[in-house]
Structures are given as C-alpha cells and as structure tokens.
Design a protein around this nucleic acid. Sequence first.
DNA 1: CTATAAGTGAACAGAACTGTTTACGTCAAG
DNA 2: CTTGACGTAAACAGTTCTGTTCACTTATAG
Lengths: 187, 187
Amino acid sequence: MQPRKQHLIDTALILFNQFGYHTTGIDLILAESGVSKATLYKHFRSKEALILAALQLRHEQVVSKLQAKIEDNKKNQETVDPVENVLFIFDDLNEWFNSDTFFGCNFINVSAEYADPAHPIKLFATKHKQVIVDIIAEQLATEDNHEVNKQKADQIGLLIEGAIVMAHTRGMKHAALIAKEMARHLL
Amino acid sequence: MQPRKQHLIDTALILFNQFGYHTTGIDLILAESGVSKATLYKHFRSKEALILAALQLRHEQVVSKLQAKIEDNKKNQETVDPVENVLFIFDDLNEWFNSDTFFGCNFINVSAEYADPAHPIKLFATKHKQVIVDIIAEQLATEDNHEVNKQKADQIGLLIEGAIVMAHTRGMKHAALIAKEMARHLL
DNA sequence: CTATAAGTGAACAGAACTGTTTACGTCAAG
DNA sequence: CTTGACGTAAACAGTTCTGTTCACTTATAG
C-alpha cells in the first residue's frame, strides 16, 4: 500500500466518523491529508470507494483488537472463563466512550446515512456487526448447546449497540458500565 | 396549521426517515408532496427548520402514543403493575420493526448525520431520548428509592436503543422480543 | 544518468442543492 | 365584488460537490 493511499484512508476514517459521511466532502479530506485530488482519484475511483476502504480499515482495527484481547485473556487464565472473556469488551467500550475520539460507531452512523439495505456501504456495515457477534458467540461456546450461545451473543450484541447509542446521542459516557452490569446479570 | 404546511411536514418526516436527511433534497419533498418551492419557503425559512418541524412531529407521535398506552393499561388494571406498564413498550417496538415503515429511529439517525453536539438538530434528538427515559422512570416509580428507578429506566432505554439498532443495521426484526426477555429478566 | 512511477497544482466540467424572486392564479370572507 | 391570504410555476442566483484533465515536478531504482 502506497503511503499516500494509506494516509488518505486514515484521514478519511477520522473525518467521516467525526463529521459524517455526507457532510465530509472530498476537499476537506484532501486539505486535511495534504494530498492532491488527482492522487485521490488515482487510488480510488469514487468517494464511495474511499468510504468502503475507510470502513474496511475500521473493521480490521476492531476485529484485531478484539481478538488480541481474547488471546491475551486466555494466556493469563489457567481456567478459561467464558463470561470474563466477554465482559472485558465493555471495559474497552468504556475507555472508548471516555476518549476524545468517540463520535459514535462508524457502522451505526453509516447505516443511518445509507439507508438502502442493498447499498454496498450498508451491506458492509451489516456484515461487520455480524462478524462481531459471531466472535462473541465463539467465546461463549461451551461443549454443548450452540443455539443458546448464539442467543446470548445476540443479547451481548444488543447491549453493545445500546451502550454506543446511549453514549453518542445522550452523551452518557458511563453507558458501557451500565451495559456491563446488565451483561453480568444475564450471563 | 395550514394544510399545505402540515402536508409538507408529514411528507418530509417520511422521506427523511426513509432516505436520510442529507440525501433527501428539498426538490424530492416538493415533488412528493406536490407543493411548490415558494410555499415551502413561506412556511419554513430553511431546510433545517423543516427538519426540526418533522422531528417535532415525530416526537409528539411517539410521546402521545406512549402515554395513551400507559393510560390504557392503568384503566384495565385493578392493581398497577409497574413492570407490565413498561414491558408493553417492546411489543410496540416489535410491531414497528415488522411494519413496512421501519427505517430506524429518526433521532438516532439524525444524530449520526448532525454530529456536532451543539447543533440544534442534535440537541433536539438528545432531548427526545431523555424525555422517553423520564417517562419510563415515572412508570417504574414506587413509593421509595427514586435513584434505583432512574437506573432501571436507563437500562430499559439502553435495551430500546439496542433493539432499534439491531433491527435496523442487522435487519433482525425480532430484536424487540430479545430485548423484552432481557428487560423482564432485569426488572 | 535516465527511465519510470508517483505526486502536485490548478483549472474546469457537470451535477445537485438551497434559497430567491417575479408574475400570475384561486377562492373565501367581508 | 373586491380584497387579501394562500398557492403555483418557472427562471435564476449562488454555492458546493464529485470527478477529470493536463502540464509540471519529484524521487528512486537500474
């Protein structure tokens, strides 16, 4: 990956998340990144392609951080505890909400702006959410009863979404702690 | 309220919700409503004013439906049951998710598009969410301990947001039933 | 040294939007 | 029957966006 291209994606991801996908124009991304317009359109054939690349980056960030933490937990545990191996997610959310880089979830936000369920951008967001829940289900897996695991994973997923929206639209930075208590109660 | 003005607001609300706030241009609203541009700008000084009017309408719809159901429940109960007086919300959500007029929550969506917390549109969305939670807290009120009620109301609010996002971004129309089970468990 | 790939800057086209203005209908109430 | 509020149609101004093009520069590997 050429450095300019990567820099464009990095910059675009931040700006899209902070200001929205329609609101953020190409020119702002160019000004902020210091890249010329011709270069942008050499690497991406449209704004939509750049949005998808930014979402792809975010997806990889989230998934790899999640999996790294899971690996880490497994190393530091002699006995694997499926509950604790999921609850840490809410601590991560808590950190995120209280950072100065929290402007809501890219995928929830982009879903709001690209409403058509058949739109590639919306499809990507849907897929991302599904992947996260699948990873959670995997963590909750015990020897038996996969159906129950999937149900519990959906419940955790619902709590995550709820916490993000609560933190973003109501500004309640402690939403992750509320969700964590609820998750502990349910698991 | 003049009929044209009301018709503009009604049309705008539907289109904004279905297609998004930036995507939906003035011209689409005019074409769909059959009203002229001059008339629109006689009633609203800007697109933003029309958005706020549409959100106000939606706010009133949600609040009045909620309160009507609460009144109804109180009449049909000899003993007031705070839990059942809140759980019905998820049945309403379930109907909504399975209707053909579900395109996510107006206020969550508009929060995604207008990210600046000081923007009047975002402020309106924040206020709406707070009003809903306050109504729920009121329902959960017993003789003592208001602090606990507020906490439980926030939990219910979180479940509602989670269900909406789950239904909207992942297309899971049964999300309200999942949330209802979780709510019953928590209350 | 030179060929090639990558990038710049600036102008431009074309589309889409918001918002304004003007000249012209319609219709009910006094 | 006329006045005034309400509405229409259409052209227009002005801005903002995406996307294209082209002449020119820089960096680097062989």
